[in-house]
Amino acid sequence: MSEVKSALLVGVGGQGAILTAKVLVNGLMRAGCDVKMSEVHGMSQRGGSVSTQVRWGEKVYSPLIGKGAADIVVAFEKMEAVRYADYLKPDGVAVINDFEMMSATIAAGLAQYPAGTLEAMQKHFTCHVLNAEKIALELGSAKCMNIVLFGSLVKALGMDDIDWESVIADTVPPKFRELNLKAYRAGYEAV
């Protein structure tokens, strides 16, 4: 555990990346890791591109990473994956939600949604691509998309030594417990 690992969760404001980070952090704390997490509040929240960083290991100093330093990027939206691709280590892993969200500039016809985002990522990195929204809807609610992606993150990083199901059960509100456990398993199996 001595080596510090860094995860970067990226998406669009309101997609629920914070809860994903919270589950990750709670499990790592139980495993006895030192943990730091960084997020930005304020102006970018609505409709803006948002990122949350989680770092863990025996002793973590910086809550923040720069370019080329992430072991894993979890992209809640696929254009966000390419936006933050240069934060990944060259041998890093990406979990990508095959899901598109327009931006205000695209909606206004001032720009076009870029083509070939998934292919570009897959060409350069080990990628796990899933349609987390579809999986979440099949389970009953689009809202558990974030925990579907969390399941894929656990698989991608091979973090099986932590009892994530009990962490999820303790982190999410009781009435969403079953849904989120199913979401976690589905995300784990999807990649």
């Binding site: 409709g47 370019k67 080329g68 691709a85 240069d86 870029p114 985002t117 570009a120």
Partner: peptide, 18 residues
């Protein structure tokens, strides 16, 4: 830092009035 350019650029997401 060693970084990879994937060759596709993301479009900006400026904050807007809700």
């Amino acid at each position: 830092p060693e970084t990879v350019d994937v060759g596709v650029s993301a479009v900006s997401r400026p904050p807007v009035l809700c």
